[in-house]
Amino acid sequence: MQVFKLSQAELDSMIRHFGSLGMVYTPAAGKQPSARTDCAPGWQPADGAPLALATGPSATSVKTFFFPQPETMQTFSVKNNYPDRGLLREPETLTEKQIVVGLRPCDARSVLLNNLPYREDPYYQANMARTVLVGFTCDAMCSTCFCDRMGGSPMATEGLDIAVSRLDHGFAAEILTARGEELLAGLKLTPAGISELDELAGRRQAAPQADAAGLDALKERDLNRLYEAPLWQQLGESCINCGACTFVCPTCYCFDVQDEVVRGTGRRIRYWDSCMFPLYSLHTSGHNPRGQKMQRTRNRFMHKLKYFPDRFGPFSCVGCGRCVKDCPVNIDIREVMGDLLTVE
């Protein structure tokens, strides 16, 4: 692995250089819909201006680049007398490179976690193949951050192609993959010296370390005991099922599929859904297996903290804290985890 040292000016020119290789996206200041339709809310096409990142994760998560909404799954025509009427076709696979700059280690880890259920999904994999992640490690944490408790760390590089870390003077760029290396081909960069490498190692050592040991006890707990815990009733009473947590969550990955037709030309699309909504599980008969608000609140937490780990190993949460920040009724997943650990 190569490490380069960069000044602020070199960093800015490196990001400008990425623009010649593909679309470059950086975090926007807020969640406002972008004026550009090719970009998801919370992100903006890089405009050459120096990158200024706020402390903590970007306003919206990086999942939009891997699991865009909507994603066109098939196209079709329902025009009368058209020979291909009703025939579904797959759209061309997108191959244009997208370079995401400025994501945090929590989001980088979310891409790997989502890749567990999406390992065989052609659309997610196509986006994996065309996306390069240039992340910035965190030298400070927000009050809502808890990546360390979920098995991550503010200085972690897992899931990134290039990791940029702040040093006392300038930055260190760690090239972690061949794709990261390709981005820098042709650039004249200064390799980091002993002092920079020492400083980077020191900062990494001083940062909160991944410690999932406390939570791992949850994995041993009996699922049905957790499911029947009294805490859900109380939590379900305050939760208003708005779904905000699921949309800002980098590791909420469920989707709905719908057909759209405009003047005889149609497409089948998938887009983010939320298990907070009653329609999510409603049968056509009218029966709803999770018809109560509390049942839906419980499903989200049980999925992240029990069902997903039982199936795949890790928890489906990276500790970015967006759900904590954005919940209108102040539900805090850290408190839920603490309460679950006390369930006998």
Binding site: Y118, L223, Y227, Y253, V257, R270, D273, Y280
Partner: peptide, 19 residues
């Protein structure tokens, strides 16, 4: 069993009965 489904292949999550 039956539940509401979208993907039918274990990805979209809609049809979960607990785990």
């Amino acid at each position: 069993l039956e539940n509401r489904m979208k993907c039918g292949q274990g990805v979209c999550c809609h049809c979960n009965v607990g785990p």
